[in-house]
Design a protein around this nucleic acid. Structure first.
Lengths: 198, 198
DNA sequence: CTCATTAAGAGGCATTGTGTTCCTTATCGA
DNA sequence: TCGATAAGGAACACAATGCCTCTTAATGAG
C-alpha cells in the first residue's frame, strides 16, 4: 500500500510518445535556460516531473539528450516555400523566414552539439537539406518559366549558395543574419551566379 | 622545512608565458583526447603538472579554458598566401592548404565552443578573417594584372565566397572537405562570379 | 476481463569533479 | 636585498553522475 499523503491521487504515469515529448520539452527548456555546460539530468528530470533513470534509459549522455532536444526543435519548425512572383523576392523571403524561425535556433544548437558516435552532422540534417534542395529547385523552375533566368539547370553548389552562405553566417556569428547580410548574399552572389537579368 | 622525499629538487616553478603555454598545450591535448564533455580541470592540471587553482585563476569556466586552447591552435597555424601563377590555381591552393592545416581543427573547435560572455565568435575570428580578406584581395589583384578577370573590384561577399563556402562545409560536416567539394566551390561558384574567362 | 510483461518514477549509494580557500615558498621586480 | 606576487599543494563541502533496487501504473496478448 502506498503511503497516501494529503492527496489520494493514484500517481499517473506517462508513457511512449507523450512522455518522450515532455522529456524533450523539458530538456530544451533547460538547455535554453542554462546553456549546454550547465545542463544537468537532475534539472531536466525535475522539470519533466520524472526521475533521472527515465532520461538515462533513452539518452545515455548529456550530448545525446541535448542533441535530441535540438533536433526536435529543428524539424518541428519547417520553413514554407515562398512564392512571391519574382526570383529575388522568393530567395529573400526564404532566407528571411528561415532567419526568423525557431529552426535557426535548432540549427545553431545542432551544429554546436555536433555528431554523436557514428552519426555525422550531415546525416542529422539530411531530411532538412533535402527539403531545402527541393525548395530552391522549385524557385528556380518558376524563375525560368518567368524568363528571369536563362536556365534552371544550375550546378548544385550554385543553386544552394544562398542558403549555404546564410547558414555560414548564422553558424559563425551565433545570431540571426541582418537584412543587409541577406540582401548582399542574394544581390552580390546568388542572382549574378544564376544569370539573373536585373 | 619541506619534506624532501627521495629527491632534493628545489621544486621549480614556471611562470608567465612559459607556464601559460604549457597549460594550453595540456588543455588542448586533453580536449583532443577526451572531447569537450569529458574534459576536466583535474586531468588538465595533472597533465600540465600543476594544480587546478592555477587553471581556475586564468579560466574560470571549462568553456573559456577550451576556447583559449582552441584559439591558440587556430592562430598558431597561419595559412600562407599562394602564388601559383593562375587565379584558379591560387584559390584551389588556398582552400586545399587551409583544409589540410591544423587551423581547420582550431576552426571547428572554436565554432563548437562558441562565444563566452560579451565576446562574439566573429570577434574571436577577427584577426584570422582580416588576414583572409587580404589574401583574397591580393590573389584577385594578381588575376586582374594577368587579365584573367575584368576587375579585382569585387563585392566583399563575392570575394569571400570561396572561403565562406569551404568554412560552411567544414563546420557542417565536422571533417575536412573533399578535393571534389573544393573544386566545385571554385569552378561552379567562385570563378563564374568574378567573371573568370576560362 | 485477467494476467504476465514492461517500464515509470522514487529512492539510495559510491564516486567523481567542482569551486573555493588556506598555506608554503619559489620567482620576480623594484 | 627585500617585499609583492603567484605557483603549486592540500583540504573542504557540495553538486551531479552513473548505477542500482524496488514498487506499481500502464499496456497488450489471450
Amino acid at each position: 500500500m502506498p503511503l497516501n499523503e494529503t492527496s489520494a491521487t493514484p500517481a499517473r504515469r506517462r508513457r511512449g510518445a507523450e512522455l518522450e515529448a515532455a522529456l524533450l520539452d523539458a530538456a530544451l527548456a533547460e538547455l535554453l535556460a542554462s546553456g549546454y555546460d550547465d545542463l544537468t539530468y537532475e534539472a531536466v528530470a525535475e522539470r519533466a516531473q520524472t526521475s533521472r533513470a527515465v532520461l538515462y534509459r533513452r539518452w545515455p549522455t548529456k550530448r545525446e539528450l541535448a542533441l535530441a532536444a535540438a533536433l526536435q526543435l529543428l524539424d518541428s519548425h519547417p520553413v514554407p516555400t515562398p512564392d512571391t512572383g519574382s526570383l529575388r523576392g522568393d530567395v529573400l523571403e526564404l532566407l528571411t523566414v528561415a532567419n526568423g524561425s525557431r529552426a535557426r535556433l535548432g540549427l545553431q544548437l545542432v551544429a554546436q552539439l555536433g555528431s554523436t558516435g557514428g552519426v555525422s552532422l550531415a546525416d542529422l540534417r539530411r531530411p532538412v537539406a533535402r527539403r531545402n534542395e527541393e525548395r530552391m529547385t522549385a524557385i528556380l523552375g518558376r524563375a525560368e518559366d518567368r524568363g528571369e533566368i536563362p536556365t534552371a539547370d544550375v550546378p548544385r553548389r550554385a543553386r544552394d549558395v544562398a542558403l549555404d552562405l546564410w547558414r555560414h553566417d548564422v553558424l559563425l556569428h551565433r545570431s540571426a543574419a541582418s537584412p543587409q547580410q541577406i540582401e548582399q548574399i542574394v544581390d552580390d552572389v546568388f542572382l549574378p551566379l544564376v544569370g539573373y537579368r536585373g
